[in-house]
Design a protein around this nucleic acid. Structure first.
Lengths: 187, 187
DNA sequence: TCGTTGAGTCAACACCCGTGGAGTGGAGAG
DNA sequence: CTCTCCACTCCACGGGTGTTGACTCAACGA
């Protein structure tokens, strides 16, 4: 194994460990030392690669934004697509799950996470959604759609409310989809 | 002013300062020193009155739960009542707003805040809601209703998404109420 | 083979935080 | 007026954190 390859591999291990701990314990409660420990590396190396704890978190958040892929959809498909994206992002792929949780967990307490959440996830993605919704209230309806999705995601994957975690995908679709359709298409 | 009265007044000032800072900066970023400073008091006094930073936060969270008053409602009134409670709790009364924000801001990163949110706010309140909804999916529907409300609250008052903050109460009612009715009454 | 480069380590610094214990001064009781 | 009590303060400790600079050693190029 070449030196450069080895370096990229440890850098990726550090980032993965950081994402996991940011996702589980939040920004403030994860320490550079514990991330380095989980990655099997000296704390100073984390600093050398990422510059600071803040920039390490920034890299983690950027990873999430880079790897979010929202499927395009017509107005009728929008609610089902949104729900499918949630399931895919939070249940199917492991690293995407950790990265998304890391962003969501900290978006209420960490300034840059809040910024990413507001600007990249909500505003930017919602602009596209608003375009496919159309009409006067398009931005508001897109915002409400996103807000409801965030609320359900938080309740199911972060707070782990029994009523939500105990539901299957089909349960959620049955209860949630008619409501979301009412949001995107009031007619 | 009697001595006991003076004591209760400074204790209340400390609690209010704590609620404001917990609400704005989160648990980890607020320090006993800064709370004491805002209350015009020595940091040691905060410890003497509340025991620890953890218990200070617990008192703040308990205040929220004690002062939440969910209006009872029939199934038809449920969505409108939920929305009205949100407006009342987050816009009308100053201290209730700060207290509710303090709980909500930290419910993803602070264990005891998450516990209060899950057990007292979601589960307990939702049990009552599920009772008035009735039917097979009652718990799930109550959970989804609560999750959507939390999502909208977070988007509007914590993340401050423009599409949500720019909407009037009537706008929100017009967009959200039909969807919530679809949740509580699928027929 | 030998010097160089760079991945990775080690020990320590400086800072800030929560917390504890001794001390102070003014209000209340007699 | 005097003694007592208690709200309140001062100061310092111990621990944990992010961060740094000097160091080690194996891989690479000539």
């Amino acid at each position: 194994m070449t030196r450069e390859e080895r370096r990229r591999r440890t850098e990726a291990a550090i980032l993965l460990a950081a994402q996991e701990q940011f996702a589980e314990q939040g920004f403030e409660r994860t320490t550079i030392r514990s991330v380095a420990g989980q990655a099997g590396v000296d704390p100073a190396l984390v600093m050398q690669y990422f510059g600071s704890k803040e920039q390490l978190f920034g890299a983690s958040a950027r990873w999430t934004v880079d790897h979010k892929m929202l499927g395009s959809a017509t107005r009728e498909e929008l609610p089902a697509t949104a729900l499918a994206d949630m399931f895919e992002g939070f249940e199917d792929d492991v690293q995407r799950r950790e990265a998304a949780l890391a962003l969501l967990r900290n978006c209420l307490t960490h300034p840059s996470a809040a910024g990413v959440m507001r600007d990249d996830v909500m505003c930017e993605a919602q602009a596209a959604v608003a375009g496919t919704i159309g009409g006067d209230d398009a931005e508001l309806r897109a915002g409400v759609l996103g807000a409801c999705m965030i609320g359900v995601t938080i309740a199911r994957y972060l707070l782990e409310i029994p009523a939500l975690t105990g539901a299957t995908r089909e349960d959620l679709e049955r209860v949630l989809l008619p409501a979301l359709r009412q949001v995107v298409d009031p007619g």
